[in-house]
């Protein structure tokens, strides 16, 4: 009995240790900072595009008036948006310009942590205003990034904040951070959940089971940006692409944690999402998903790729 208790205690101590290593090991914030640049750029562009018809999509009346949307959302207090309360067009434009600036600051890394907090509040505000209506997967991924960027030191590298510190003579190295690790782990796990449920939903589809779904996706004229209808003569290729997509999505949450399989899993992500971006016209969504996959890059890899360019920019700006 004593032996069993000791074994259980040993197991629990080991599990707690592994849990601590997984979540609370300090890490170089390079990956998080790189994601801030990419996600910040995506948030900036996504929201800049609303400017083309702001009143119609986000305004009080427009395509789908706020009252109608609130009715569909069930008038829940927790479904919130600053745009539910803005009546005048000039007020709408003021908030919109402020929002676009916040996302620009987030991308550039100016007042990074504050920009990240405002960025999250504003991204959710826009998303709730257009859900349902004009939202799609991109808004979900944008809000996911905005949520987790708030948690870590996303401006520690590759940011104007860092350059500002250097100009003031603060040349101390960037310290490893536990909160950066937490933020990255949350993005990774959230992505695993996204793929798992996307794969499970596809299992219910007859065309995904039959191996023809990729055809029906590329044969959609409204989505099509680059024709892939030549696939009509290649049913085996369509079948392979369909089945690989389903199995890859289903097992992503397991395979991506294995360091030998991770490169394969991530390269499939590149092919799938670049395919969506190139052939189905969803460049923004495809890129946003790819950015999320980059959360699995080691900080050392990110630094090897990004530091030379970042150093050159910093040198120019700091003299």
């Amino acid at each position: 009995m004593k032996r069993i208790v000791a074994d259980i205690r040993s197991y629990l101590a080991e599990a707690w240790q592994a849990w601590n290593l997984f979540w609370f090991s300090p890490t170089d914030p390079a990956t998080l900072c790189f994601l801030r640049v990419l996600a910040g750029a995506m948030l900036f562009y996504t929201h800049l595009v609303w400017s083309l018809d702001l009143q119609a999509f986000i305004g009080q009346k427009g395509w789908l008036p706020v009252d109608f949307i609130r009715g569909i959302q069930g008038h829940q207090w927790s479904v919130w948006s600053i745009f539910f309360y803005i009546e005048e067009p000039w007020q709408l434009w003021c908030v919109h310009i402020f929002s676009v600036l916040v996302f620009l600051f987030l991308m550039l890394g100016l007042f990074s942590r504050t920009s990240a907090i405002f960025g999250f509040l504003l991204a959710v505000s826009y998303a709730h205003r257009v859900s349902p209506g004009a939202y799609f997967g991109l808004d979900k991924i944008n809000c996911m990034f905005a949520l987790y960027l708030m948690l870590g030191p996303c401006g520690a590298r590759y940011s104007l904040d860092r350059i500002w510190r250097l100009r003031r003579g603060d040349t101390s190295p960037v310290a490893p951070s536990t909160s950066a690790n937490l933020a990255i782990r949350l993005i990774q796990l959230h992505l695993c959940i996204i793929y798992l449920f996307s794969g499970l939903a596809k299992l219910l589809g007859e065309n995904w089971q039959a191996g023809s779904a990729v055809w029906w996706a590329v044969a959609n004229y409204e989505y099509q940006s680059l024709s892939a209808t030549w696939l009509a003569s290649w049913p085996v290729l369509v079948g392979l692409a369909t089945h690989i997509t389903v199995f890859w999505e289903l097992f992503y949450c397991c395979l991506v944690w294995n360091r030998h399989l991770r490169p394969i899993v991530l390269w499939i992500a590149v092919v799938v999402h670049l395919g969506i971006a190139m052939f189905m016209g969803m460049i923004t969504f495809g890129l946003a998903m790819l950015f999320a996959n980059l959360s699995f890059l080691q900080p050392a890899t990110v630094r090897r790729w990004v530091d030379p360019l970042a150093d050159r920019i910093a040198l120019k700006l700091t003299g």
Partner: peptide
């Protein structure tokens, strides 16, 4: 529910599913 709503997490991820 309210936590999911507040953080814009109250949705699924059925990209091109169950069928295009």
């Amino acid at each position: 529910r309210h936590y999911l709503n507040l953080a814009y997490l109250n949705h699924g991820y059925q990209f091109f599913a169950p069928d295009p």
